[in-house]
Amino acid sequence: MAKQRLQQVADTMQRILGEVIQTELKDPRVGFASVTNVEVSADLQHAKVYISIMGTPEERATTMAALQRARGFLRKRVAEEMRHMRFIPELHLIEDTSIDYSLHINDVIRQIQHERMVNPPRIDDEQ
């Protein structure tokens, strides 16, 4: 399948799953979660669904467990919205921690900048 077509399928799935998670899942364990990316295999058998979850580690684990339990419902909703497709990929939900990582990197940079302001590097004039 052409790469552009795979990307269209992934983008459509991302939009559908994001809407369903936000508006249709009634499980109170599902906190604030958003679909950040979908990668579809070339044979359309599998889709990695990356989900960013806000909250404490416990809240994120609870949300992820609730979403894992809802995979069948999520796949069914994708199938209903994408009726033209012969196969609907099996969903593999993966927590996207890239936002946490970028926040950590920003904190490290801020800490380094602060340390440089407090203790500026010495420049030897004798060179």
Rank of each mutant, 00 (worst) to 15 (best):
V108I: 15
F73W: 07
I21T: 06
E90K: 15
N37Y: 07
E81G: 01
L67H: 01
I16T: 03
L103M: 13
R69H: 07
A33L: 08
E24W: 04
R60P: 04
K3L: 12
K26C: 03
S34F: 01
I88H: 05
I21S: 01
F73G: 04
Q111G: 01
T12R: 14
S98D: 07
V38L: 06
Y50H: 10
A2R: 15
R77Q: 08
V49K: 02
R122V: 09
D100E: 14
E81F: 01
S41T: 14
M54R: 08
G31T: 08
I88C: 05
R71G: 01
S52M: 06
I99W: 01
P89W: 03
G31H: 08
V118H: 08
H104L: 12
P28A: 11
I123L: 13
P28W: 10
L103E: 04
M54Q: 08
V40R: 00
M1N: 13
T62Q: 09
I16H: 02
E24S: 12
T12C: 10
G55I: 07
Y101K: 15
P121W: 06
S102P: 00
D96L: 14
V78Q: 04
M13A: 03
G31A: 12
T62H: 05
E90M: 14
R77F: 00
V20W: 01
I88R: 05
I123Q: 08
E39H: 09
L25I: 15
R5N: 09
R77S: 03
I16R: 04
T23L: 15
G72W: 00
Q14S: 11
G72Y: 01
V40K: 09
Q8I: 05
G72C: 06
V49C: 04
V9Q: 03
L17P: 00
I94H: 09
E19S: 06
R77C: 02
F73A: 12
D124P: 03
R60I: 10
A61Q: 10
A61W: 02
I16N: 00
Q127M: 12
V118K: 14
D124Y: 12
M85W: 04
E115I: 09
D125L: 14
L74G: 03
M64N: 09
A66S: 02
M82G: 03
R71C: 08
